[in-house]
Each structure stands twice: as structure tokens, then as C-alpha cells.
């Protein structure tokens, strides 16, 4: 539940797996059959897992459940040892910002804010002391080879924009990073560069990575690759209702 320790790393949560899904079921309002039914799924600390699946299989829905943007019909989603869905709205938002990093397919950098400010943004909503924000963000930008910290996103190349997005996802040192189709908007060559970057940085920072993609070329890059269809025991008819 919402509490002052909701967004802090307690000893209990530090040693837990990055993500644990247990007996999860989800149906959109008005749906009789669940879209997702996952008996059990876990992503260990620092583990890198690829979750593949065709379009409409429920990959984005699963990510939204893991981010706490959707509430399951049944079951639990634990991130860094905390059951996300037992947190109140505001506590869940704070928890998400602090413990889950997200790399969007289209980056979603904030316009009107510099690269540095974009990276500092999740820190602003966290319990990390304000005096550390800029140093952390600058270190990440340097590590990801973004020399123009003061540049606006629209003045950066696509590759630089993606690096800023990755730096932002890791700013709070989250236990779990979610990557939603990170190569979908890139050509194959840049797709490889982008994946190299995301995976390397997650590894360096000890964050688990759950990457959702329908790109079969990524399978061999991960510690573990799963097809959502193997995990999801819900009736396929439900998928066609939402696809």
C-alpha cells in the first residue's frame, strides 16, 4: 500500500527478483474472456529477457501491467519485490519512476527540455537527493557519449536521441528496464547498435531488461527468449477481440 517506504529500496526488495508475475489474468472492461493469463513468469536481477510475439498478442498490455498502468483482473505483478498493484495511484507512479526504467519505441523525449534535463526528469520525481541529480545525469550522458548535454532533442541525431532515452531510463538506477520494440523504428544496422547499447548499459548498471519485440533477429542476444504465446494460456479468441 502507499507508504513512505514505497519508493525506497528496502533490504527485503534488494535481493528479490526484478520481476515476478504470479497467476496473472487480465481482461479489458466488457471482455468476458481474459486477454492474458500467465501462471508464472520471473525475470531475475540483471537478467535480460526477450519477450517475442506477433502483433496483437498482448505484449504491450503485459508491459502496461508491469508498469502498473493497467490493473490485473487477478494475480500479482511484483517489481523489485513489491506488488505494484497493491500500491495506491500516487505511490505507484512514484514507485514506477524510481524502480522501472522505460525505453519507448519512439523515445518520447520531452520537447522544450535539453538532453540533460530529459535525463534529470525521472530524478525530479524520485526520492534521490536533488544535489545528486545533475551529476548523475551528466555522468550517464558522458557514458553514453552525448557531448551536447545542453542540446534540445530536436537538434540531436536519431542515434543520439535514443541514447538520451536510454540514459533517462537508467537515471534512477532502476531494478528493471522495459524496452518496447526498441528497434522497430530503426534500420537493421542501427537496430543492432541500439540493442547493443541498451543491453550493455543495463548490464553495466545491474538492471534487468525485459525487451518486447516481434523482431526474430534479436532472439540470440538475450539470456532468455520467450514467446508470449507460450506464456499466455488465455483463449486465442480473446486476442482477436482486441487485435
Amino acid at each position: 500500500m502507499a507508504g513512505s517506504n514505497a519508493d525506497t529500496k528496502t533490504p527485503e526488495t534488494t535481493h528479490a527478483g526484478a520481476l515476478e508475475i504470479t497467476d496473472l489474468a487480465f481482461a479489458y472492461p466488457g471482455q468476458r474472456e481474459p486477454l492474458l493469463e500467465i501462471a508464472s513468469f520471473a525475470c531475475g536481477a540483471g537478467e535480460q529477457v526477450l519477450l517475442a510475439g506477433r502483433s496483437g498478442a498482448g505484449k504491450s498490455t503485459l508491459l502496461n501491467l508491469v508498469m502498473g498502468l493497467l490493473d490485473p483482473t487477478r494475480g500479482s505483478v511484483r517489481v523489485a519485490g513489491r506488488d505494484l498493484h497493491r500500491l495506491s495511484g500516487a505511490a505507484r507512479d512514484r514507485f514506477r519512476g524510481r524502480h522501472i526504467g522505460v525505453v519507448f519505441q519512439s523515445f518520447h523525449l520531452l520537447h522544450g527540455f535539453t538532453a540533460l534535463e530529459n535525463v534529470m526528469m525521472p530524478l525530479a520525481f524520485s526520492d534521490i537527493p536533488a544535489k545528486e541529480h545533475e551529476a548523475r545525469a551528466r555522468a550517464l550522458l558522458e557514458e553514453l557519449d552525448i557531448p551536447r548535454a545542453g542540446a534540445l532533442p530536436e537538434n540531436l541525431s536519431i542515434g543520439q536521441q535514443q541514447r538520451v532515452a536510454v540514459a533517462r531510463a537508467l537515471a534512477c538506477e532502476p531494478e528493471l528496464v522495459l524496452a518496447d520494440e526498441p528497434t522497430a523504428s530503426l534500420d537493421p544496422e542501427n537496430g543492432i547498435i541500439a540493442m547493443d547499447l541498451v543491453q550493455r548499459v543495463c548490464r553495466q548498471h545491474g538492471a534487468a531488461l525485459l525487451c518486447v519485440s516481434h523482431d526474430p533477429s534479436l532472439v540470440d542476444r538475450f539470456d532468455r527468449s520467450l514467446n508470449l504465446a507460450e506464456l499466455n494460456t488465455a483463449s486465442p479468441a480473446a486476442h482477436t477481440q482486441t487485435a
Binding site: A90, R94, R96, L110, H111, M121, F125
Partner: peptide, 15 residues
């Protein structure tokens, strides 16, 4: 879209 991104980054609805 900006508001949605801020929410994902940890900004609460009341904020």
C-alpha cells in the same frame, strides 16, 4: 503525450 511521459517517469496525478 508529454503528460503521459511524465506519468511514466514518476510524476503523480495530483502533481
Amino acid at each position: 503525450r508529454q503528460i503521459a511521459v511524465l506519468r511514466v517517469l514518476g510524476c503523480t496525478k495530483p502533481r
